[in-house]
Design a protein around this nucleic acid. Structure first.
Lengths: 366, 366
DNA sequence: CTGAAAGCGCTAACAA
DNA sequence: TTGTTAGCGCTTTCAG
């Protein structure tokens, strides 16, 4: 007999629907009816049941309910890092849309580990979440894609849906919706903005290599160069991570080795903040000597001095739409998840103060 | 017969433990055993069961499991706004601690509405969350406190725990743990820092009135004045909200009416960012003409120029500890929630660049 | 408008 | 090592 057994004996046992029924002198079916307000119950009966519930401190058990009935009204969202504003804003969109449809939101953080990502999808499936939203760039790994595809199918077979948010669709044959944003287009536009100001040696800094987000931004960066007839130089590209630290260290180290660039395209605003600090410490003026742009348009872009020119993504809207895509709209009685369907939202550049025309003759060999 | 009925007929029915048992030619108990790895199962049997699960795409139902067994291994966290770094960092602590103990995290956003806060506590209780963490300042309303107290008791009676994080405990008789931080102390320290630099007319800007966070910060602000023998002037205090917009507008409007202050204590870093912008637009130099401090020490403090002097709070640690307080440690077999117990973490000021000694004769009447 | 009864999918004794 | 058998707390026909 384990210690604490007598305590366990007097252990709290929550009131159940049966306790309520007994106390109110009705059947459990009636209690269920007042709980769900889905069948007529005599006013007087209802009141009796309601006070019984109050007196007993009755709280319905969502698990029993989910088991007996349909859904538990929860959705899941998987992000890399909840303190990263990119993910936080998307999460807000998902949470708000979930709340609007009377659902709770399970938030999972992978810290960038694809293994945990898959494990979380499983966990959310076990929870019978109505939808699971997978946020952020994906790696282009065969095994990973196969694993994810299998889960999408399992989820779909169970009547739930997987939605990809901010990453490419799994293709028409896989039952997973996707909300994308024009990542390549945004990168193209902001690179063109730089080229248009006369910059030709543009550093690209940050973003994990092999991740779709990075790939698309780099594609836009390269296309802009090609369209202007400027040969893109891969020696100017340094991928690594989406962190302030990476931006800072890389810029600092680069500054010691070379000065043959007049602009920096940071993979996102957070990286840009790190780059700005390194530039500042080296006494390099922005945008006087070096122009700087970011991506995402998160709040830090407005706080930096000079304010950061960047690419706006409708983050919260993406989150909201992801859930809309996955969930039946309330007034649509019989509804089938648009198993596969991709929604693509636009991006646009926000011009602030961190870009200036290139001063002729400024770029010199490192 | 509703439309889509024949579709419903061929509707996916997920494989259950019985299907797996049948296919593997064993009993459901055995399947349960290989699922939970808590009882010996013959190697050969296990393999048979495992492939049956794989073939059927079996995914255990967490609700059935929760209903039959003990917990569903989820915790809840209620914050005002997930994109606010104050909450995001605490949420990260909670989420990480939850993940560490194999739990999922239900995140709820109230958008500052105490009504929704209570409603979320109920929802989380329905979900039978092992713990619910209520984050952020509280209003001092009798009815509200009574409602919350009742829920704390119900939760406790059900074997779950309510933890308050960043707000005062409900008192020794209410079964709710609390993780606080030395809010008043931090406010005292940073006000004293300002006073020590010769500032005597210090504006206090932001924070919703009537909320504990605001009350405590103001208390520290006042105590510092008193200790230095400077009469605190309530005319310098403008509460309102914890938003950038509030800081910006209030500072901008104040600047038109008065200039009889030499320093600003913003209720948090976000408000400080707004204040800084208003000051900048009015051509008032920080810290040359006006010193500025914030509270929280969230990333924006490092991005502002000048960098913001502020009060550091161990946000992530608070979240982590909140859950530790609420949950049994794995190696503690029989465990009772320390129903009531408060943990208080320290705060300290971080001196950066936004404070300078008062220039004598600088404060002039508006 | 109300009650009886049959599960929902799983776990945990208790037997074997 | 495995199977049998009760439930866990709720919803939902189907009767009345």
């Amino acid at each position: 007999m384990p210690r604490g057994a007598e305590q366990a004996a007097i252990e709290q046992r929550r009131a159940t629907i049966r306790d309520v029924a007994e106390r109110a002198g009705v059947s459990t079916a009636t209690v269920s009816r007042v709980l769900n307000r889905n069948y007529p119950v005599a006013q007087e009966t209802r009141e009796r049941v309601e006070s019984a519930m109050r007196e007993l401190g009755y709280v319905v058990n969502a698990h029993a309910r989910a088991l007996a009935g349909a859904s538990n009204r929860t959705v899941g969202i998987i992000v890399s890092e909840i303190v990263d504003p990119f993910f936080a804003f998307i999460a807000r969109g998902v949470e708000r849309e979930a709340a609007r449809t009377g659902r709770l939101c399970l938030v999972c953080c992978t810290e960038g580990d694809p293994k945990r990502e898959l494990a979380f999808v499983d966990l959310l499936h076990e929870q019978r979440a109505d939808a699971v939203v997978l946020v952020g760039g994906s790696i282009a790994d065969r095994t990973y894609t196969a694993e994810l595809t299998r889960r999408a199918q399992e989820l779909h077979a169970g009547g739930a849906s997987l939605v990809l948010c901010g990453r490419p669709s799994l293709g028409g044959r896989v039952p997973a919706a996707a909300v994308e944003y024009d990542n390549e287009g945004g990168a193209f536009a902001i690179t063109d903005h730089l080229l248009n100001q006369g910059h030709e040696r543009i550093l690209y800094l940050g973003g994990p290599p092999g991740v779709s987000t990075t790939r698309d931004r780099l594609a836009g960066y390269r296309r802009a160069h090609e369209l202007r007839g400027v040969a893109p130089d891969d020696d100017l590209v340094h991928t690594g991570a989406f962190s302030r630290g990476f931006g800072y260290r890389t810029m600092r180290d680069l500054l010691r080795r070379r000065r043959d660039f007049t602009a920096v395209f940071a993979a996102n605003d957070i990286v840009a903040a790190g780059v700005a600090q390194a530039l500042e410490e080296a006494g390099v003026r922005i945008p006087g000597e070096v122009s700087l742009v970011g991506y995402d348009d998160v709040p830090v872009a407005e706080e930096m001095r000079p304010r950061l020119t960047t690419v706006h993504i409708p983050l919260e809207e993406m989150g909201r739409q992801a859930l809309r895509l996955a969930l039946p709209s309330e007034d649509d009685d019989d509804w089938r998840a648009p198993s596969t369907g991709v929604l693509r939202l636009g991006t646009h550049i926000v011009v602030r103060e961190s870009v200036a025309p290139r001063t002729p003759g400024r770029a010199r060999r490192g």
